[in-house]
Design a protein around this nucleic acid. Structure first.
Lengths: 212, 212
DNA sequence: TTATATTTGTGAACAGTTTCACAAAAGAAA
DNA sequence: TTTCTTTTGTGAAACTGTTCACAAATATAA
C-alpha cells in the first residue's frame, strides 16, 4: 500500500481528474463497480495505465471484479483535495475575467470565487454575481484576511507580473494565469498557465504538418 | 538538415510557441542574434533543450554567435503555420464564448474569428464585434462554404458532442474544446481541450500534497 | 595570422513514462 | 467443491523525452 511514496507525475494527476469525472457520471448511473478496462475505454487510455495510476495511491480494486465506484471516487477526491472548499480570488474583470466569474463549473467542484479585483474605477464597487469588485490596491491585504488559497490572474499581460508579485507577497502558493506572458514565481509557488493562443497554435501546427 | 524527418513531440511544439514569443520581443528590441543559453534563461529551460528542439527542423544557428533573431522567428512561423491567416468559427456565445469573441490576441496571431454560432434565438442575428451570430443549424454548411480551418466549441457540455459531430461531418480537422466533456473524434481530427476546472484541480492537488 | 573564447549540433547517457505480461486473487459457473 | 474466467497489481521491458558532453565551426582578441 504505497500511500504517496513515489513522485506522482503531472500526467497522472491530469488523468486522476479525468477518472474523477468518469466516476461521478458512473455514480449517477448507479454503477457500483468499474473495471480498469471500461474506465480506460471511456477516455481513450489503456487499462494498464489506469491501474498503474491508481496503484500509486494504494490498492482498492477487487480482482475479478474491478474498482468500487463510490469508494474510488472518494479516494481520488481525498488525494486531489476535492472534498473541501477552496477560496479563490479573481483578479481582472475584462473579457475573460467576467466569463470566469460567471463560470458555474468552478463552484460545482468546490472552487469558491470569494473575491474579485480590478483597477478600473468604473468596475470597482460593482456587483458581479453577488460579489462586489474590490480595488486591486487592496489585493495583498485581502487575500491574506480572506484566507485565499488560489488566485486567478486575468489582467492584461503588462500588469500580470505586478499582480503576481503582490499575491506572492501575500503568501499565495497557487496561481492560475490567463495572461499571455511567462510569470516569474518563487520555487514554492505553483503556477499554471492557460494560454488560448498557444492552444490554437498547436492546432495550426497540426494542420500545417498533416502531410509529412 | 533533417527537415521534419522525426516525429516532433507535443512538448517541442509547445516550446516552439514559447520561443516564437521570445523572438518577437527580441525583434522589437532590435536584437539581431540570440544564443540558446539566453533564450533558455528567459523561459526557465536548458540551452541543450532549446538547441535540440530547433535541430529537429534544421540548423540555422551560427557557432560562436547564436541564432539570427528574425530568420529564426520566420522559420518557426513557417513550421507552425503562423505566417498565414486561419479561419476560425466559434460555436456558443455564453460566458466563455463571448469572452473569446472579444479576445484580441487571436487576431494578433493570425486566428481570424470569421463565424459565430448559437442556438439561442435572442442571440442569433445580434452583432458580436462586427460578426453577426448565425443559427447553429447552419453550422455544417457554413463551415464548408466559408472555408473554416479551426472550430472553437464553447457550448454547454450536454450539446458539445452534437456540435462536434456536425463540424467533423463538415470536414473540420482541428477543434479547440472548452466544454468540460471528453469529445469523441475520428483519428484524423486534432482535438485539444481547455478545461479550466482541471487546471484548478492541479493547483488543489499541489496545495493538498505540499508536505509529502 | 594565430590563439582563445563562444556557441552550435548531435550522438550517447540518463531519466521518466507507458506498455507488456503474468502471477495472484477473487468471482462465476459447473 | 472444483474449474474456469475475470481482473487487479506490479516488476520488467519498451519507449519517449531530457540532459550531458564534446567535436566542429565561428567569432573575437592579441
Amino acid at each position: 500500500m504505497p500511500a504517496q511514496l513515489k513522485k506522482i507525475s503531472e500526467s497522472t494527476i491530469h488523468r486522476l481528474s479525468i477518472y474523477y469525472r468518469a466516476l461521478a457520471a458512473l455514480e449517477k448511473e448507479n454503477r457500483t463497480t468499474i473495471s480498469s478496462k471500461e474506465l480506460a475505454k471511456r477516455d481513450k487510455l489503456t487499462p494498464a495505465q489506469v491501474r498503474k495510476d491508481l496503484s500509486f495511491f494504494g490498492s482498492f480494486g477487487t480482482r475479478g471484479l474491478g474498482y468500487p465506484v463510490v469508494e474510488l471516487r472518494n479516494r481520488i477526491a481525498e488525494i486531489m483535495g476535492l472534498n473541501r472548499l477552496w477560496n479563490v480570488a479573481l483578479v481582472g474583470v475584462g473579457n475573460i475575467g467576467s466569463a470566469l466569474a460567471q463560470y458555474k463549473e468552478f463552484a460545482k467542484q468546490g472552487f469558491n470565487i470569494k473575491l474579485i479585483f480590478d483597477n478600473d474605477l468604473r468596475k470597482i464597487g460593482s456587483n458581479h454575481k453577488g460579489i462586489i469588485v474590490s480595488d486591486v490596491r487592496n489585493l495583498k491585504s485581502m487575500v491574506v484576511s480572506e484566507n485565499i488559497d488560489i488566485v486567478i490572474i486575468a489582467v492584461p499581460a503588462a500588469s500580470a507580473q505586478a499582480v503576481c508579485d503582490e499575491v506572492v507577497a501575500g503568501g499565495i502558493k497557487a496561481i492560475l494565469n490567463f495572461a499571455p506572458i511567462n510569470l516569474k514565481v518563487p520555487d514554492d509557488v505553483v503556477l499554471r498557465n492557460q494560454n488560448m493562443c498557444i492552444e490554437l497554435e498547436h492546432l495550426a501546427f497540426a494542420l500545417n504538418n498533416k502531410n509529412r
